[in-house]
């Protein structure tokens, strides 16, 4: 008779794990990423390869430097790299893409304490930094299957149909143009129970409503830029969005409103990721506002009597 294990209850665990979740997210991103690579050719694939591998490498080395376990194994760096790469133009210089991964992993994620502790979405924050530093490269796109360079933002290009917007045969960032793939991936994650539909519903709902009030072409507004990837992936990031369903909905709504404002009244052609990063800062506040009331907890309500007593005492 050997020595028996002595541990605290429960003695049974579910099989969900961080790695499994991250793999599902990568799977959900793949349709849009692959379509992007097919549409924009070899260089687009290289950009994704560089952002993902650089992100994983930087995560590995930060793990050594900061002495953190479980850094690369959880696959979260690969997700960050993929998300960042998908939001870059197809002809983005590779070394600049690697800098983007460095900013995302080291500056935004690991410097704040590693996975689960960062305040802004690493990919979104790094994307904003790249936009400011390498503005020209970040705003030069190419019509798929051609060498035609365009520097106008996709929402303003005008002449493309909804079908093109759904399947990505328009000029734009690698992983953003195939809206159908992103919607598919987003629904897959919701059905798996990995993400909740609250944030995308708030995001797309408020954005569509504002676009409709503003007299814009609503489907076109929804299908262009980073709106879909923002609503289904960036606004559903666990770490940087609120915990509760109502918090997530408010978060998404805020993102939708900000995206609309930046797109139509701001200086940037597409401000989805700026909106997400800005809303990330509201997450602690939204968490506090929407915290659930524990079952059976008695909320101390101020009755008229106690109010009167308080004012009398004052």
């Amino acid at each position: 008779m050997g020595k028996l294990n002595d541990s605290a209850s429960p003695h049974l665990r579910g099989n969900a794990s961080v790695t499994r979740i991250m793999l599902c997210v990568i799977l959900a991103l793949l349709p849009a990423a692959i379509t992007g690579c097919l549409n924009y050719g070899r260089h687009a694939a290289l950009v994704l390869l560089v952002t993902v591998s650089a992100a994983v490498l930087f995560d590995f080395f930060s793990g050594l430097v900061f002495k953190r376990i479980n850094c690369v194994k959880d696959m979260s760096a690969a997700v960050t790299g993929l998300l960042l790469g998908m939001c870059l133009p197809p002809d983005f210089p590779l070394w600049k893409a690697a800098i983007g991964s460095f900013l995302a992993i080291v500056a935004v994620k690991q410097a704040f304490g590693g996975i689960g502790k960062n305040i802004a979405n690493p990919a979104a924050a790094a994307w904003i930094m790249l936009l400011l530093v390498f503005h020209k490269d970040m705003t030069t796109w190419r019509i798929p299957m051609t060498e035609t360079i365009v520097s106008s933002a996709q929402p303003l290009s005008g002449s493309v149909g909804y079908w093109d917007l759904l399947f990505g045969s328009t000029a734009g960032n690698i992983g953003e143009t195939c809206a159908a793939g992103l919607i598919l991936g987003g629904i897959f994650l919701c059905l798996c129970g990995i993400t909740s539909p609250a944030a995308p519903v708030g995001f797309l709902g408020s954005f569509a409503l504002l676009s409709w009030i503003g007299g814009f072409d609503v489907p076109e507004q929804l299908l262009t830029g980073a709106v879909m990837i923002g609503a289904f992936f960036f606004a559903n990031d666990y770490t940087t969005t609120p915990l509760t369903k109502s918090g997530k909905f408010l978060f998404g709504t805020g993102c939708g409103v900000l995206t609309f404002l930046i797109r139509h009244y701001g200086g940037f052609s597409d401000g989805t990721l700026i909106a997400v990063a800005a809303m990330n800062l509201f997450t602690p506040m939204l968490d506090r506002l929407t915290a659930p009331v524990p079952f059976g907890a008695v909320r101390k309500k101020k009755t008229k009597k106690s109010k009167k007593q308080e004012t009398a005492a004052a």
Binding site: V18, N70, D74, I115, G116, K117, Y238, T239, L243, T244
Partner: peptide, 11 residues
């Protein structure tokens, strides 16, 4: 089980 940092999944 090897415990890792919380990712705030909210489960």
């Amino acid at each position: 089980y090897e415990e890792s940092a919380c990712i705030r999944c909210g489960r």
